[in-house]
Every structure is written in C-alpha cells, then in structure tokens.
C-alpha cells in the first residue's frame, strides 16, 4: 500500500470510529516509514476535520464525533512514543475534567474530553457529579496543567468557585489553569469566580487549552473562546 493510500485509510478509520483498525493501520504506516507528523496532520487530523464538517451538516452525529476522537487518540498513543524529541509538541498537557457536584449531565463534558485527547492532551475524566475537593486532589495527584469544569445547572455553578477558592486556600492557584464551560456557564461567571478561561463549545475548549498552554502567562484572564450570544 502506498503512502497516499495509507494516509487515506487512516483518515477513513477516524471517520468510521474504528479503534481496532486504526491501531493496526498506524503501526503499518510507521513501519512504512511515513513521518509521524504526516500521519497526524494528513491522516488523523483530516479525518477529524471531515467528522466535524459532517457533524455540522447533520450527516454525522454525537456518537460519531466521540468515537472518531477516541480513534484518533488510540492512534496518537502509538505515534507519540515514536516522536522522541518532537514528542513534547504533542504531549500538550494533562487535563483533569469533570461535571461539577450536583449535576449529572455529561454529554458535553465527554465530547470535550474526547476532543482534547484527540488533540494530544492526557485527560483524567472524573465523570459527573464530582465534589470540588476531588478536582483538586486529582490535579495534585497527576500533576495536571488544567482543571476543566463543566456545568449545566445553575445551582451547581457555585461549586466551581469552591474549586478555585480551595486552590487559593492551599496556595496552589497558580499551578493550574482552571477552565469552565457548559450550558449554564457564561463568560461573566468565569470572570466573577476568577477562572482562567471559558469556551462556548468543545472545539473552543481545545483552542482555549492550546492558547493557555502557549501564551497563558501573557494573556489577560479569563480567556474567552466563542461568543455567548
């Protein structure tokens, strides 16, 4: 199989959400001597772009989006160790993510987690209905870079502030970028509680993490990605 064909196959496997298939195809592509960067940009990323476009047009749907992202992540897990000195570029950071206490909605959070993984982040998903202290404990345990908090219910939003306050009280606020999102969360709230960023949607969350990772020390907080109507 030629290079072009192998890259197209990788792209198609991402679109089809075939985790099993992509592991094999990724190894084959690496063995064929294709540059890992090319595998990522011309295979995996193109597949994710197609899924994103089709999702927008109602040709593919939420499960396709999540499975495609998980498939790309499965390939990245094989590729990243082969990147040696260039690996750092793709190991973008560690994210502890969860839906806040009292809130059991986790669809949006799952999409964010999947897209972050597909974009090179190591994600520690705490699930939904997570107590504030658990976000902090997990971030400390895994030495995270980001704490990402999702919320769809107004009465649970207050717990977002508790996480930040806990970080302040422990004297470790500056160790983490705290980002927030979800249907109940608006930009002003991010500002009010002292979060580092807010994103409107899952793609925005990836952009937000990238931006904070690259220029987090320079930019004014909170960084807002997307428009709140």
């Amino acid at each position: 199989m030629g290079k072009e064909e192998l890259l197209n196959r990788l792209k198609d496997l991402v679109v089809n959400g075939d985790e099993e298939g992509i592991r094999e195809a990724t190894k084959e592509a690496l063995e064929a001597g294709i540059d890992p960067l090319e595998i990522i940009n011309e295979g995996l990323k193109k597949g994710l772009d197609i899924v994103g476009e089709k999702y927008e047009k109602l040709e593919l749907f939420l499960p396709d989006l999540v499975l495609a992202a998980d498939t790309a992540y499965a390939a990245l897990n094989i590729i990243i160790p082969r990147l040696s000195e260039r690996a750092q570029e793709f190991r973008k950071g560690k994210v502890v993510i969860g839906t806040i206490y009292g809130d059991i909605h986790d669809i949006g959070k799952n999409i964010v987690a999947s897209l972050l993984r597909a974009n090179g982040y190591e994600v520690f998903d705490l699930g939904s209905d997570v107590e504030p202290r658990k976000f902090v404990e997990e971030a400390e345990r895994v030495e995270a870079d980001f704490i990402a908090i999702s919320c769809l219910l107004s009465p649970s939003m207050f717990y977002m502030r508790d996480i930040i306050q806990r970080l302040v009280d422990m004297g470790i606020r500056d160790k983490y970028y705290v980002i927030v999102g979800g249907a109940a969360v608006y930009p002003e709230w991010a500002k009010e509680i002292g979060a580092d960023g807010w994103a409107k949607d899952a793609e925005g969350a990836v952009k937000l993490c990238n931006l904070l990772k690259e220029r987090g020390k320079e930019v004014e907080k909170p960084v807002l990605v997307g428009k709140w109507r």
Binding site: Y55, L58, F61, L62, P63, I107
Partner: peptide
C-alpha cells in the same frame, strides 16, 4: 437531541 445519540431528525 437531533445530532445527538439518535442522529438525524428521523432518529
């Protein structure tokens, strides 16, 4: 949700 677990409007 259209676009969610059940897919298109028909789903």
């Amino acid at each position: 949700t259209i676009g969610g677990y059940f897919g298109p409007p028909e789903g």
